[in-house]
Design a protein around this nucleic acid. Structure first.
Length: 475
RNA sequence: CGGGGCAUAGUGUAACGGCUAACAUGCCUGCUUUGGGAGCAGGUGACUCCCGGUUCGAAUCCGGGUGCCCCGACCA
């Protein structure tokens, strides 16, 4: 029977619809009763938990410690930093009543925690001996965005936000890049290549001196901001009074950073690897790495199931699931696990049981082969590595072949991906680009930072260009 | 916040102003089946978004409200 039920819109037909279909059909998430807020289902949440676990390990390895600050922020705190409040006030959720009474001081649900944490930081930082202070928190924040999108931009989302304090600019900026490196590694862990570098003044975090970013590419060529790391300078230190007494006996303003990565990364994962059959998960973040589908008839049911369990037990340390559901045919199960992106499927039937063999199907390439049960564990472990590399290489090839060098704004056409161009870095020119093409700068790639632009003139205005940048539409 | 669309079993849809609101899917029971989305039988499941109006009679027409989706603008 060739006619597979088509429940997923092909990517080429309508990418946003494909994305929504995959989120639904793979059982990742659904919309809730509250506008813009998602419900993450067990399978989707497990992916996020696997990402969190690894990211948490990487963050702790840098020496940062975890803390927790309240969900609510006095509005006055948010208003302290002018750029910050301007950037965030349009999307605040505000608590006006509590305990049956109207609050005299309104509370914002945190959109990010700079304003929630730094009054306390002012108390904690007294001496240069208290620095650096490097803290991180895992929490949820709320930003009432105009247009939500599953995982990528929900009104409430989970993330980690790190907030560090340093004595001087140099050490603070070092950390900005160090943490960006953590995010880049984290994406590599998910087999996603990213472009790391700086954001333009227009695109930087509200209140930051410098924002750095890792940008992933969806399979429709749009950019996804995968994580950001900011140098806040002394902007917040000034208004929240974060200063320290130096060895010189003088007070100095502290230099701060903040850095965050959210469950938007799950969205990036879907968009970077998914195909027309659904999700394709790299083994590192797959809730189920190996699914075993037993195929039996009445007369060999016990033999096949016993063999399937034996095989499952031999794969210690792997996330293995034996699909023993009775109601569904093998074909149904094959399709279901493919939609869910399980990297490796083992088909175990009478033939395999007799031969002490396994039929191995890999989701990334769709290739099926039969192997001996002897040494199967080592075989699968190597296969994981190969699947990871294959997914990474595919995504890398896609990324690099979808970066188009242009010399003039007039060269922008309907090609998907990023446009690389030499740019004057003025906000005025970026506004012109945005108005004409609904496109902004995404990133000044790190490797372009210290070098001369390929073209001396700005591709928009003809003014002197400063660097080569990537420009793209984004999620 | 602008432009467009929609609101009916869990989900997706149908129903001229007129019988007990239909079909598919899902779910439950039983039988049967299992190497790429099986089949049969029975069953479960809806104040047709809300308020009001027109009418002998409203899921259907009218007014108002609310909510959601899509496209923009907005968006570390």
């Amino acid at each position: 029977m060739e006619q597979t039920k088509r429940v997923i819109t092909p990517q080429a037909e309508n990418f946003p619809e494909w994305y929504q279909d995959v989120v639904r059909e793979a059982g990742l998430a659904e919309v809730s009763e509250v506008r813009g807020c998602g419900i993450i289902k067990p399978y989707g949440y497990k992916i996020w938990e696997l990402i969190k676990a690894e990211l948490s390990k990487k963050i702790e390895a840098t020496g940062a410690e975890n803390v927790y600050f309240p969900l609510f922020v006095p509005i006055a705190n948010l208003e302290a930093e002018a750029d910050h409040v301007e950037g965030f006030s349009p999307e605040l959720a505000v608590v006006t009543h509590a305990g049956g009474e109207e609050l005299t001081e309104k509370l914002a649900v945190r959109p990010t925690s700079e304003a929630a944490m730094y009054t306390t930081y002012a108390k904690w930082v007294q001496s240069y001996r208290d620095l650096p202070m490097r803290l991180n928190q895992w929490n949820n924040v709320v930003r009432w965005e105009k247009r939500p999108r599953a995982f990528l931009r929900w009104s409430e989302f989970q993330w980690q936000e790190g907030h560090s304090v340093f004595a001087d600019e140099a050490t603070a900026v070092d950390e900005v890049w160090q943490m960006l490196g953590v995010y880049k590694d984290m994406y590599a862990h998910m087999a996603i290549p990213v472009v790391d570098g700086k954001k333009s003044d227009m695109e930087k975090f509200a209140g930051a001196v410098m924002t750095t970013t890792v940008e992933a590419m969806a399979r429709d060529g749009k950019a996804i901001q995968g994580g950001t790391s900011h140098y806040l300078g002394t902007n917040f230190a000034k208004v929240f009074d974060v200063k320290y007494l130096g060895a010189d006996g003088e007070h100095h303003l502290a230099h701060q950073t903040s850095w965050g990565m959210s469950w938007r990364s799950v969205g990036a994962l879907i968009m970077a690897h998914g195909d027309d059959n659904g999700l394709r998960l790299p083994p590192n973040v797959a809730p189920i790495q190996v699914v075993i589908v037993p195929i039996y008839k009445d007369e060999n049911k016990d033999t096949v199931l016993a063999y399937a369990r034996e095989v499952a037990n031999s794969f210690s340390g792997m996330r293995v699931h034996v699909d023993v559901r009775e109601g569904q045919t093998p074909g149904f199960k094959f399709n279901e696990w493919e939609v869910k992106g399980v990297p490796v499927r083992l088909e175990i039937g009478g033939k395999e049981a007799d031969e002490k063999a396994l039929t191995v199907y890999r989701r990334d390439t769709g290739v099926k082969e039969k192997i001996s049960a002897d040494g199967a564990k080592e075989y699968i472990e190597k296969l994981f590595v190969d699947i990871h590399e294959t997914l990474y290489n595919q995504a890398y090839d896609f990324l690099t072949t979808h970066i188009h060098r242009i010399e003039s704004i007039d060269d922008i056409d309907d090609r998907i991906g990023y446009f690389e161009a030499s740019w004057s870095e003025t906000p005025e020119s970026e506004k012109m680009l945005k108005e004409r093409f609904a496109m902004v700068s995404r990133v000044l790639p790190r490797e372009f930072e210290g070098v001369e632009p390929k073209n001396t003139k700005c591709f928009i205005t003809g003014e002197p260009a400063k660097h080569d940048w990537y420009f793209a539409k984004s999620y």
